[in-house]
Design a protein around this nucleic acid. Structure first.
Lengths: 206, 206
DNA sequence: GTCTATACTACGATAGAC
DNA sequence: GTCTATCGTAGTATAGAC
């Protein structure tokens, strides 16, 4: 599929160089086609950019959607189920942050987080919204003592622990004194994240 | 100071548009000078980029250095002092992530985290290294039950909770349903971060 | 030190062949 | 649907005036 190839190359280039820095010529060449194919398929550079955002949202939903929906439903049973649900969703998110497949998506999204454009709306509504809403519900059930705003803040901070694994990747590698995060280091980080989250969620109000 | 003005404009433009996307013409114009001043002062676009990284590192050190050194020294006294030290350093870091002043630095650094260049070495050695080393020492004292690798992982995850406040800013605003993070929301987030960190650090091994 | 002028390359968009 | 050719614009670098 030519347009699929163009989309994946576009995500990579936009993530690397930003919207202005990326070149449609280079994207087309790396996809093995001519620049005017982009005009034909997507209407231009901006159309390609927005289509790339939609594609990322679809990929994330395909990867996380089922797990999140299941955890959300199961979490309604009990506080303990909610805690397990948070741990499961968070671990799925951490796995995505650790995977090489998701690296280009993360670079694209990270840029949009700084200066959101229409592409961020598509990312948020297409993928992030269900993820965050499920997490907020689960956290609220796990910590019924927290007011809504505090539960939302806790959700954000929990995601932050997973986010750093991608958004701060170079620093993570420096701190751990490794070239790349292999399976054993990933397991260690995930276990720590799980322990931290469990500790935060199971804290009982005094 | 003309070269100072150029540096600050450069940090902003490189952070917004990336190295390739930023234009030396635009940077010069926004600084009220001609493009060839960049050649004169910094040798070219790349020299300006590296100088911008050095400038950011110096600014961060000026902002955090004293507090971090004090916390590190005080933390050697007792486990409790170490815990308080971590909370203090983390709060200082969170404040930086929340401040508008540091936003351009964060955008610049976030880009470097994804594809580190020589500029990342300068950022890490110039500012991040002392910060992370101090935190690892403090966390190790606060949680003497943790092996070194686990203490490092915990440090990373603790920083992640503060990092998300900048690196995931657009999502944070969406989740909290606000346009911008005002003082009261910032206070809430910092308090939650403090509570989470305290809970993680004061956990006693079973 | 800071400017203008210029050389050269690469950009996105578009028209038109096939 | 995919290509080549071309247009106007904007990029960096550099030389030389002041």
């Amino acid at each position: 599929m030519l347009s699929e190839k163009l989309l994946n190359t576009a995500i990579d280039h936009f993530g690397r160089f930003g919207f202005e820095g990326a070149s449609t010529r280079a994207i087309a060449k790396a996809s093995g086609t001519a620049m005017s194919s982009i005009t034909y398929h997507f209407g231009g550079k901006e159309g390609l950019y927005l289509a790339a955002a939609d594609h990322i949202a679809a990929c994330i939903t395909a990867l996380q959607g089922e797990r999140v929906a299941a955890a959300r439903a199961a979490g309604r049973a009990s506080r303990d189920a909610a805690i397990q649900g948070v741990l499961g969703v968070l671990d799925g998110f951490a796995l995505m942050m650790l995977s090489a497949e998701a690296a280009p998506w993360a670079r694209f999204i990270t840029r949009e987080q700084q200066y959101p454009t229409e592409a961020f709306d598509r990312l948020y509504n297409g993928a992030m919204r269900t993820l965050s809403e499920a997490m907020i519900e689960l956290v609220s059930r796990a910590r019924p003592d927290l007011p809504e705003a505090e539960a939302k803040a806790t959700t954000i901070l929990l995601f932050g622990q997973a986010l750093v694994l991608r958004a701060g990747r170079a620093s993570v590698c420096r701190v751990l004194a490794v070239e790349r995060i292999d399976d054993s280091i990933a397991a260690l980080l995930r276990a720590r994240l799980r322990a931290n989250a469990l500790c935060i969620l199971s804290e009982t109000p005094q």
